[in-house]
């Protein structure tokens, strides 16, 4: 059994209790108006790392919770859950976003790229490899978000200066303070990626 499977097994009682409580909250009748879905689960299809995934989720479920709790794609991390820290960063339609603050239902029909999808077989993506080379992590919890933010930044700015790399990562926090290593890693990755090794 995986560590995650074990944790989930232990936690399931609490989770079910929480859901029950929320469902009991009385909802007054919403205004008249037009076509709506929910509040109960609705069919949702997400295109993640090139593969379609069919889910049945309430409209309130975020993309981050869909990835982590329903698809076992746990690379994107849940830290602040309020669009501030960047640990949940994924790329949607070519742009970096905070997956904690996107509804899964809104991410349908878009190409979603997560940390799980950027390696080729056993070969690390140049950004991940550069993070290893520059020791650009300590506890590692912010790392998947930073790697995705750095990849999204380099996709748009293939030849950045150190200052541009610094500004390009302004949406992510590392409480261990490994920023210097990360900026160097971004510059190294930009050289690697231009070399076409990972084109």
């Amino acid at each position: 059994m995986s560590r995650r499977g074990f944790i989930r097994g232990v936690g399931i009682g609490g989770g079910a209790l929480g859901t029950g409580l929320l469902e009991k909250e009385a909802l007054a009748a919403p205004p008249a108006g037009g076509k709506t879905e929910g509040p109960g689960p609705v069919p949702i299809t997400l295109n993640i790392n090139g593969k379609p995934y069919n889910l049945n989720l309430e409209p309130r479920v975020t993309l981050l919770d869909a990835l982590r709790n329903h698809l076992d794609l746990t690379g994107a991390k849940k830290v602040c859950d309020r669009a501030t820290c960047g640990a949940c960063t994924v790329i949607v339609s070519g742009k970096v976003v905070y997956s904690c603050t996107v509804l899964a239902i809104d991410a349908q029909g878009k190409e979603i790229q997560t940390i799980e999808g950027i390696s080729t077989g056993n070969r690390l993506h140049p950004v991940s490899a550069a993070f290893v080379n520059h020791d650009a992590q300590q506890c590692g919890y912010c790392t998947p978000g930073f790697v995705m933010a750095a990849k999204g930044f380099l996709d748009r700015n293939p030849n950045p200066t150190l200052e541009q790399a610094e500004h390009g990562l302004c949406g992510n926090l590392c409480r261990c303070g490994t920023y210097v290593g990360m900026r160097k890693a971004v510059l190294e990755a930009s050289r690697e990626m231009k070399g076409g090794r990972h084109a």
């Binding site: 929320l22 205004p31 108006g33 929910g38 409209p59 309130r60």
Partner: peptide
């Protein structure tokens, strides 16, 4: 987050028809 019903209008006209007359009905 409290559960809500979700609307995905394609026009301004459809969108405003879905709004409420008091805060809290529709965001």
């Amino acid at each position: 987050m409290q559960a809500f019903e979700y609307a995905n209008p394609a026009t301004i006209q459809e969108a405003v028809a879905l709004l409420g007359s008091r805060w809290g009905e529709a965001d």
